[in-house]
Every structure is written in C-alpha cells, then in structure tokens.
Amino acid sequence: MNGRRAAGPRPGQTFDREPARRVFAGELREVKLQFREGEDEKSPSFVLLPTGARCNRIFIVGTLTEKERRGDQNVFYHARIADPTGTFFLMAGSYQPEAMQQIARIEPPAFVAVIGKPNLFESQTGSMLVSVRAESVTTVDRETRDLWVLDTARATIERLEEIGKTDDSKRAEEHYHPDPAVYRRMVYDALAQLKI
C-alpha cells in the first residue's frame, strides 16, 4: 500500500476528487439513470439521484448484515448493508483488494462505514438494480452511524429544497418526477429511529 501504487494525479496537475454523496438506501434504490461526463474512457461516471444530485461516489454507514464470498479464480464479495430506510448491495472484487480484505475480516452483524461507487446494472429479470463497488469498508461505532443518519438526512432535505434550481435537479425532475413528500417522510422516519 505505502508508496507502491502511483497516487492519483501527477504533481502540478490539478484534480478535484469527486465528493462522496450522502444518500439513504431508500433513495439509491430508485436510481435508474447512469451517465458519463465527457467522451474519454477515463471520464467519471455518475448516477443521478431522484432528489437531483449526481454521484460518482457515495459514503454510507449502516449494519453489515450478510456477506458472501463467490468465485474461484476471481474471488469477490457480496455484502448487504442495512440503513433505516432499506438495504445497500455491496460488491468488492479483485480490483478493490483493500475493500475485499476489509470485508473478509468483518463478522456480521457490525456497523460499517463504506466509501464506494454506485453502479447501475440490469438484473436477470430485466429490472434495474444499483450496487455499490466498495473502495473501503471499516468497522465503526453506533455514534458514527447516528451521525451519518443526521448527515444524510440533512443532505437529502437540502437536495429536496434545491429541486428545480440546478441543472441536475431539473434533469432528475424530468426523469423521475420525485414526490418530495415521500422523501421527506423517508427522512423523517429514518430520524425517528434514532434515540434522543
């Protein structure tokens, strides 16, 4: 790890790392649109959230409830992470060695913090599913989980308040016709599960 891999941009090159968006499972599940910015093979790919933000990367904290090791030659892990609104589907393969080794060491159930990239794919039954390709998975405490619920609630409300004001949110409105009341309800219910 230390110094073995070339690290991102060369000196002198400016590079803005994509922020990790905060999103509840209940919203990510609804994602049906993925796009690439620019023609380049290396240009980042985004999914568009129904509340109107593009995300190339997300940050989630929840309970790792199940993990499953698959494959012989190409080992990869599948895992399920539950938050107060639903479930995230996590993937880590040989291209994410760090995350794979981290998942291998965690015994469910456990609170985990995940940084990863959302991907849209079509299931065998033809429906669109979102999975998260993990970059890193660490075990955390309950307080970090609670902080994430607050953080994600705030981010979701702020996106709801911006609906129709940014290009991305206009695009999301056209594509998803989101009902703000439904998402407010989801946020409220998620918050209500925390103990004061």
Partner: peptide
C-alpha cells in the same frame, strides 16, 4: 471527533416534518 448532538436531531426532525406532516 464530532459528537452526536440530540439538538441536531430535533432540528432535523422539524425540518423534515415541517411541511410533510
């Protein structure tokens, strides 16, 4: 380290519930 603040929770509950409930 940021600590959990129940005041934030109460404020967010209001903000989320303010228009929907």
């Amino acid at each position: 380290k940021i600590a959990f603040d129940p005041g934030d929770l109460a404020a967010l509950l209001n903000r989320a519930g303010g228009e929907a409930q």
